Structures are given as C-alpha cells and as structure tokens.
Simulated scan of single mutants.
Amino acid sequence: MNTKAITRINESVGDRLFIGAIYTFLILVLIAVLYPLVFIVSASFSSASAVVSGRVWLFPVEPTLDGYKAIFNNSQIIQGFSNSLFYTVVGTFISVTITILLAYPLSKKTFYGRRFIMVLLVFTMIFDGGLIPLYLVVKNLNMIDTIWALLLPQALAVFQVIIARTFFQSTIPDELSEASEMDGCSETKFFWKVVLPLSKPILAVLVLMYAVMKWNMYFDALIYLKSEELFPLQIILRSILILNVESGGNIEEVLKLQGLKELMKYSLIVVSSLPVLVLYPFVQKHFVKGMLIGSIKG
C-alpha cells in the first residue's frame, strides 16, 4: 500500500473539512491582499478617463503610459526619487554599522555592564521623550532642514539590536573567539575576518528592515525639512495625493487635470514601491534564516 492511500485512510471527514476551511480562508486572504496591488498596477497603465470614470477593475482599460511619462517628465518627482535613494543607501549603511557595532559587544559575556546597557535600550522601547524634545534636540544640533535630520535621529532601532545580539550569541561560539586569541588574532581582526563573513543572514535582515524604513520615511521629512530640493519621494507622493486641482479654466480642462492627477497617483505608487520589490528577492534566503536564528534561539 502506497503512502497516498495510507494518508487517505488516516484522514477523517472532519480533518478534510478543517483543511478545506483553512485553504479557503487563506485563498480569501490572498485575494484581499492581492487585488489592491493588481488594481493599482492596472490603473497605472490605464487611460485617465478610464480611471476617473471607475471602469478599471482588474485589467488595464485603454492601455497607455501617460502616467509614467508624466512622472518622469516631472523634475520634482525625479529629485524626490534621487533623494529617497540617497537617504535609503546612506541611512541604511549608517544604521547597519551602528547596530552591528552595538549588538556584537552586547553579545559577549565578557563585556562588563552589558545587562545594564540592555535595560537602558529596552527602556527606550517603552518610554520616550516625545516629539517636542526630539525636535528640540535636532534643532539644537543644527540639523533642521539638512540631510542629517533624516540620517541620524532614527539611525538606531532597538528591536534590530536585540535580533542582531541574539544572532551573535547563537551563531558565534565563544570557543571560536578563544581559539583566535590563542593564534594571536586581535578582537578587531576577528570581527572583520570571522564574525562578519558568518553574519550574512543577519546583515540581510538588517539591510532589508532599515532600507524599507528609510525608503518609506515620511513623518521625519515632514517635520524636519523645509527645502523642496531635500524632500524625499514620499513627501512628493503626499503632495500629489492631497493636491486639489484649481477650478480655473473650462470644465473639460479641469476634468483632464483631475484624470492626469489620478493616473500619476497610481503610477507613482508603483514607482515608489519598485525598489523594495527589487531588493527583497536578493536577500530573501538570508532574511528568513536570519529572522529565525535571531528571534527564536538564545
């Protein structure tokens, strides 16, 4: 008797109904999550009149690239896209560097005071000074309306530090460090030559988490930045989403501008989501492994 036949015999009617209910629920969740994404992509490739009139449901209607042409012909959007790339790349590098340099010493049992430092870090996850004190600190450091206002105040996330510390404790054994010391290897050289090459999974986790956070950074830019040439793409997207078309001109011109605005909105959502969608497949394998090791073990 083969395995399939044994499985069919062991499964009762109740088990099959339960599994069927689970699959049905998961399919409904998939549709609920997938449909808005499909709709946005379809609307971005449809004509302005089809979008405004609500004729777009699943597939593009009257396919066109007018929305994407309008985006790439807008110098403000290009500038915002470039700024977001800069904030994401530089900000992620700073954040990952600080997180690793803090998490690795905290994972060492010989580091004096590491428990006290962890208590202080966890305390900041429960209580914080609030928005006004943070703004005053940034202002007193002369970072208002500068690129540093988006790079430094939110450079460190305690949750990421905890994950990285747990990863180092679970993956880098003390015996490996002791063996390297016996061979005359310094702590710095051990960190660069041994720890970092073994830490690719957690590095992928940190890069993806910080990159998504930096790319979607909106509130900090809204508070700290005043110059339009420093605005990230998310602020530009906000201005397009809430922009009201002036009522001047004839009714046909107003409807045309409204349609173009709606079309640009969907096209810009697709463009702003594209970098994260491109990044994730390259770090997916390490991301899953790093999350499992960094959050379950230790």
Rank of each mutant, 00 (worst) to 15 (best):
F159K: 09
M209G: 11
L260Q: 02
P133G: 03
V283H: 06
E62H: 11
L101E: 05
Q154C: 10
L28N: 09
K108F: 06
V271G: 06
F116R: 09
P275W: 01
M209C: 13
L131F: 10
K256G: 14
S42R: 00
I78V: 15
S47T: 01
F282Y: 06
I162G: 07
N216I: 01
L156Y: 06
A157S: 12
G67K: 02
S42V: 03
G298N: 03
P36Y: 02
I236A: 06
F282V: 01
L225F: 07
V56W: 00
G290S: 02
V276Q: 09
P105Q: 00
L237E: 01
S170V: 05
S75Q: 11
A211T: 01
V205G: 05
P281C: 00
L26T: 12
I6S: 07
P105C: 01
V271N: 07
Y35P: 14
F219A: 10
I94K: 00
F116L: 14
V29M: 15
F59Q: 03
G67F: 04
G14E: 06
I9P: 10
L260A: 04
G80I: 04
S42N: 01
E187G: 14
I27Q: 07
P60R: 00
T124C: 07
K69T: 10
L102F: 10
I71H: 04
L136M: 13
K4N: 14
N73Q: 12
S53K: 12
I202T: 04
V122M: 15
Q79V: 09
E181A: 13
I6H: 05
N140R: 13
Q160N: 15
V254S: 06
T7R: 15
V61G: 04
I293N: 00
D183Q: 02
Y87P: 12
L134I: 10
F167P: 08
L268V: 00
N142M: 09
T64G: 01
V288P: 13
E229L: 11
G184C: 07
S177Y: 15
S95F: 00
S170K: 07
M143D: 04
F159T: 11
F72I: 01
N216D: 06
V41H: 00
E11V: 07
P173G: 00
A179D: 07
A221M: 05
K289C: 09
M209K: 09
P63E: 02
A164G: 05
M209P: 09
M125T: 14
L101T: 09
